[in-house]
Design a protein around this nucleic acid. Structure first.
Lengths: 250, 250
DNA sequence: CGATTACTTGATACTGTTCAATATCCGTGG
DNA sequence: CCACGGATATTGAACAGTATCAAGTAATCG
C-alpha cells in the first residue's frame, strides 16, 4: 500500500522560503521575486513574535492584515460549535497568510511553535500590488499553491485510510523539513522533527489521537519508521512511505 | 445534529454568474466586472460544448487554456492508481477553471450534464490581465472563492459524519440552484434538481454510493426531505438541514 | 419490451472511534 | 538528585459507523 500511489507534489515548483533577515533594500527584481525574500514587504510591515498556542487571528476577525511567516510553524483551523476541529493546513516559514475573499478571516491561525512573522496592513499591500506586478504574481502563486495543497488534502481525507494519511503527512513534513534552514542530518535517512502534537496531527488528518498513535506504532513495528523520541521520526531506508494523491489511474 | 452548526457560506459574497449570451461589446466597467459577464473574455475565447461524461481536460495535460463555464455542471476530480476517485468540486455556470501554479492541470474535469463553455488560451488571458486590473481582480476572486470552498470541504471530509455530509451537500446544491437561471418553483420549499449521479455524490463526499443512498432514505423517513424522483429533492419546511463548517465554537 | 444502468435495501465485516488504563516526558520543588 | 505532578503519548477492549458484498427494484434507452 505504501508504494501504491505517487505524489503530485513532485510536480510542484519548489517552495521558496528565503527569508532575508537583513532586509537589504534591493529593488524588486522582476521574475525572481519571492514573498519571503521581498525587501519591500519586510519594510512595509511590523515584525511580531508569538509563543506556542497563542492566536494570530480568529475566524471572524476583520481581515485587516496579511502575515508573512519568518520562522516557526502555525496551524490554520476551523472549529465547530460542538468542539470538533479541523486543521486545514500547517503554515511554515515563507508562507503568506491572511488573504481572503471575505472581509473577515475564514479560519483561525495559532502558533504551534514559537513564531516570528511580519504583519502587513492589507490596504498597504494592495496599494503596492497595483504598482508591482511582481508582487502581485508572487501573491497569486502563494494562493494557487495553497489551493493545490488543499486539493491534495481533500483526496487524503476523502479517500485514504489511516495509515495512508499518516504516511503522507510524514512525507509532506519531510519535504518541508528538507528545505528548512535548521538542517538536520539529512543524508540517506530523512530524520524529521515533528513540531506539532498528536492532537494537531489528528485534527489535520481527520483522525483521533489514538489512531495516529497506533498507526505510528505499527509503522515502527513494520520497520518503516524509527522514533528516537515521540516528536522525532526517521523515515528508514528507501521504502520511505510513498502514499500520495493526484496520481493518474492507468 | 442538523441544526448544530451554521454556515460560513452565509458570509460569502454572492456568486456572480450572469452569463451574457449576447456578448455585447460594452467595455469592462471597473468594479462591477465579473468573469461571466465580461464581454472581453467571451470574445477572446472559443465556445465549445461537451456531452455528459466527456472530458474537458485530464490531470497531467498541458494547462494551455482557461475555461469559463456558460452552462451545465462539471466535476473536477483526482484519480488514484487503484481506482479510487475524489471529486474535489462540482463546477457550475459562471465558474472559471484551469488556473494552476503548475504548467500541467492537477486534476481532471469532466462534464456531468451537457456543458457549454468558452475556452480561452492561457497566454491570451494573461496578456489581457496585465492591461486590465479589473479582469485580474475577477480572477483572483474566483481563485479565492474556490479556496474558501475547498477549506469548508476539508471540514466536511475530515470531521463530519455521513448524514452531515449529505445534508451539507444538499444545502450547497440548493444555494447554487437558487441562483441558477432555470428557476424551479422556489417559494417556501426549495426543490433541487440533482444533476449528478449517486456515484459522483459519493466520490465528492468521501462515502460510498450505498451510504449516500441510505442517508437519503433516512432523511426522507425523518421527513427532512422529499424525493419525488431520485434526482429531485425537496428540502421540506424550515428545518432545512443546516450542517455546515466554519462555525466559531463558543 | 427487453436489456442495461442506476438506485435502494439487507446482512455482515472491518476500520477507526470511544472509553479507560497505563506509560512516558518534562518541569518544579523538596 | 530524586520525587512528584501534570501534560502528552501509548496501548487495550468494546463499540459504532461506514464499507463491502449481494440481492432486489426502479429508471432509461434502444
Amino acid at each position: 500500500m505504501l508504494d501504491a500511489v505517487t505524489p503530485i507534489e513532485a510536480r510542484r515548483p519548489e517552495r521558496t522560503l528565503t527569508v532575508s533577515e537583513g532586509s537589504k533594500t534591493t529593488p524588486c527584481s522582476a521574475s525572481e521575486c519571492t514573498l519571503g525574500s521581498c525587501p519591500l514587504l519586510h519594510e512595509l510591515g511590523v515584525s511580531k513574535t508569538y509563543s506556542p498556542n497563542s492566536v494570530v487571528f480568529f475566524e471572524g476577525d476583520d481581515a485587516a492584515h496579511y502575515f508573512l511567516i519568518t520562522s516557526g510553524v502555525l496551524r490554520g483551523c476551523k472549529l465547530l460549535e460542538d468542539g470538533r476541529r479541523q486543521i486545514n493546513r500547517f503554515i511554515f516559514a515563507g508562507d503568506l497568510i491572511g488573504y481572503s475573499i471575505n472581509p473577515k478571516y475564514t479560519f483561525t491561525v495559532e502558533a504551534v511553535t514559537p513564531v516570528t512573522l511580519v504583519a502587513l496592513r492589507r490596504s498597504a499591500v494592495e496599494n503596492r500590488v497595483e504598482a508591482s506586478p511582481c508582487l502581485h504574481s508572487a501573491i497569486m502563486k502563494s494562493v494557487l499553491s495553497e489551493l493545490d495543497e488543499m486539493q491534495d488534502q481533500l483526496v487524503t481525507l476523502g479517500r485514504m485510510n489511516a495509515e495512508e494519511r499518516v504516511s503522507r503527512f510524514l512525507c509532506l513534513l519531510a519535504e518541508r523539513s528538507a528545505s528548512m534552514p535548521a538542517g538536520l542530518a539529512r543524508d540517506d535517512l530523512a530524520q524529521i522533527e515533528i513540531p506539532m502534537c498528536r492532537n494537531d496531527i489528528a485534527d489535520y488528518l481527520g483522525l483521533t489521537i489514538e489512531t495516529v498513535s497506533r498507526v505510528l506504532s505499527r509503522l515502527k513495528a513494520d520497520g518503516k519508521i524509527a522514533m528516537p523520541s515521540c516528536n522525532r521520526i526517521v523515515l528508514t531506508g528507501r521504502d520511505r512511505l510513498k502514499t500520495e494523491p493526484g496520481d493518474i489511474a492507468a
